[in-house]
C-alpha cells in the first residue's frame, strides 16, 4: 500500500513561490488562507535556505487528536482529510499542528473563525468525488484522477516532490548519492515518526 508523503529538497528549492501560487489557483483558496507557504531561513545571508511547508499528512496527526468534534480522517494511503460540515472552527488544530497548516477564513472577536481549511494533498474531501460541493469546500480532487498534488507536479526545480513515500524517498536518495552531502528529509520525523 502506498503511503503518500511530501518532501521538500532544500538544496533545490529556489523560493520561487510557484507551489504557493499553483495551490491558490488550483483550489481557488480565498485571501488570507494559505494552504502552502514558503519559509526562508537565513534570508539574505550566506547559506540561505528555503522550504515549502504545508500539511504533512502526519501518521499520528495532532490535529485529529485534539479535535473536539473528531472531524479528521485518514485515507488508506495516509492522506489526512477533514469534514468541514463537522468543523466548528474552534482553532485547536491550529495550536496543535507542528507545521502551522490549519487555516481559517476569519479571525474575529468571540473566537469566530469559520470552517478550517488546509492542504488536502489535492484529494478533496468527504463530498462526492468531483462534485460542486467538493470543489467549493475542499478544492479539486486530483488524486482520484491519478494525479499528484499540483504544487509538487509543477515545481520547476523538482524540489517539492509528493507521492508514494517509497518512490519519493528513492528519488531523493539517488539525488543525495549523486550530489553528495547529507540528506535533509525536513519534517519527516515529526510527521511520519521514527520508523521511516
Amino acid at each position: 500500500m502506498a503511503r503518500m508523503k511530501f518532501l521538500c529538497d532544500a538544496e533545490r528549492c529556489i523560493e520561487c513561490q510557484a507551489c504557493v501560487t499553483a495551490c491558490k489557483n488550483e483550489h481557488e483558496v480565498p485571501w488570507g488562507v494559505n494552504r502552502r507557504r514558503v519559509i526562508v531561513m537565513n534570508d539574505g545571508r550566506p547559506g540561505e535556505k528555503s522550504i515549502s511547508v504545508a500539511c504533512m499528512h502526519c501518521t499520528d496527526a495532532p490535529c485529529a487528536a485534539v479535535c473536539p468534534v473528531d472531524c479528521f480522517y485518514t485515507t488508506a494511503d495516509g492522506i489526512v482529510l477533514h469534514d468541514k460540515d463537522l468543523c466548528i472552527g474552534c482553532g485547536y488544530c491550529f495550536y496543535a499542528c507542528p507545521f502551522g497548516a490549519p487555516q481559517y477564513p476569519q479571525q474575529t472577536a468571540f473566537g469566530v473563525r469559520g470552517k478550517m481549511d488546509k492542504c488536502t494533498f489535492c484529494a478533496g474531501g468527504p463530498e462526492p468525488v468531483h462534485s460542486q460541493e467538493e470543489l467549493t469546500k475542499y478544492g479539486t480532487n486530483r488524486v482520484e484522477e491519478g494525479k499528484l498534488p499540483l504544487c509538487a507536479e509543477m515545481c520547476a526545480t523538482k524540489a517539492l516532490i509528493a507521492g508514494d513515500g517509497n518512490v519519493i524517498a528513492d528519488i531523493y536518495r539517488k539525488r543525495v548519492m549523486t550530489r553528495g552531502g547529507r540528506p535533509q528529509t525536513w519534517g519527516w520525523q515529526a510527521a511520519y515518526g521514527d520508523d521511516i
Binding site: Y73, T75, D83, D85, P126
Partner: peptide
C-alpha cells in the same frame, strides 16, 4: 461522519499504481 469513498482501502489500492 459523512462518508468518503475515496478514503477506503479499495480506492487507495485502485489509484496507487497511477500515482506511483
Amino acid at each position: 461522519g459523512s462518508g468518503d469513498e475515496t478514503a477506503s482501502e479499495e480506492a487507495a489500492e485502485r489509484r496507487a499504481d497511477a500515482l506511483r
